[in-house]
Design a protein around this nucleic acid. Structure first.
Lengths: 145, 145
DNA sequence: GAATTTTGATTAACATGTGAACTTCTTGGC
DNA sequence: GCCAAGAAGTTCACATGTTAATCAAAATTC
């Protein structure tokens, strides 16, 4: 409790940034070896876990804005980690699916990725970890005013 | 408690992202009217609160990487919100100071900015809010392994 | 005290964040 | 059925994130 906390540590935005950096640093290192970014990883995981879906839904799940997602899907398509088909029902939409190569990347790196979280959870204490998640989700759902 | 939580809500990185977006959205709207970005705002606040200092220290306080900060300082200098002088002790360094215009921007918008946090804190409950900050700082200081 | 290493800052290159404009397609209103 | 309004993606323009390379100026080493 008496470590050299910067004055900014009571600033919520900065605290969120620093915490995120602590979590994602190791993950980024793992993914860099595979040649994909954190965001590309998030998109692939959503597709692997929730099946083929349109970009709008992917954006919600992976917490990305559509302009970013557009570019990310282009990259993933070049790398042949996903495929896209037009939606027969609505020609504005498209259906994005993960390929076998994409699935393989997920399967080969999910363990190392989860290990990072388990280490953090264990170090923090599972109860405190769950409390943190609860508070973050509560903040997310906050309807101020 | 029975709102439509996405499955990703138990993912720490996503939860951190979503919480941050909830907090920063309103702030960005305020700052956009003044013509500065969230990061430029953080830099100005550090300079206003902690006085003139070198870029490395600013980067730590504002949670920015040096390459980003280099560009941000260039923009802020063009807008005449900061000034830079060479450090007489160490010619590799420089000393960055906020200008009167910069200070004015801070003073004229700090209230609205703090109001956002107060609203969130009040809505969450001050005790839970403090707990969240504590847990985030604990996570930041985590030395896993 | 010259060579090596380290540090502070910048630049480069690529990827994403963000708001606005734009295209195409679908839907509602009439 | 036409037409305006809305939705899904894309593109644009600018700002930042991120890693690696670069450069000048200390600090170390020998």
């Amino acid at each position: 409790m008496s470590t050299d906390l910067p004055l900014t540590s009571r600033s919520l935005p900065i605290a969120l940034l620093r915490a995120r950096e602590r979590v994602m640093g190791p993950i980024r290192a793992i993914l860099a070896d595979v040649g994909i970014t954190e965001q590309q990883w998030r998109v692939l995981r959503v597709l692997e876990e929730e099946g083929p879906q349109d970009p709008t839904r992917i954006a919600e799940q992976a917490c990305l804005l559509l302009p970013s997602l557009t570019r990310i899907l282009q990259k993933l398509e070049e790398k042949e980690l996903i495929t896209r088909q037009p939606d027969p029902q609505d020609r504005r939409k498209q259906i994005v699916s993960i390929t076998a190569s994409g699935t393989r990347i997920i399967r080969e790196n999910l363990g190392a990725s989860l290990a990072v979280f388990d280490a953090i959870r264990a170090n923090m204490g599972p109860d405190r970890f769950e409390t943190l998640l609860d508070l973050l989700n509560e903040l997310h759902q906050d309807k101020t005013g």
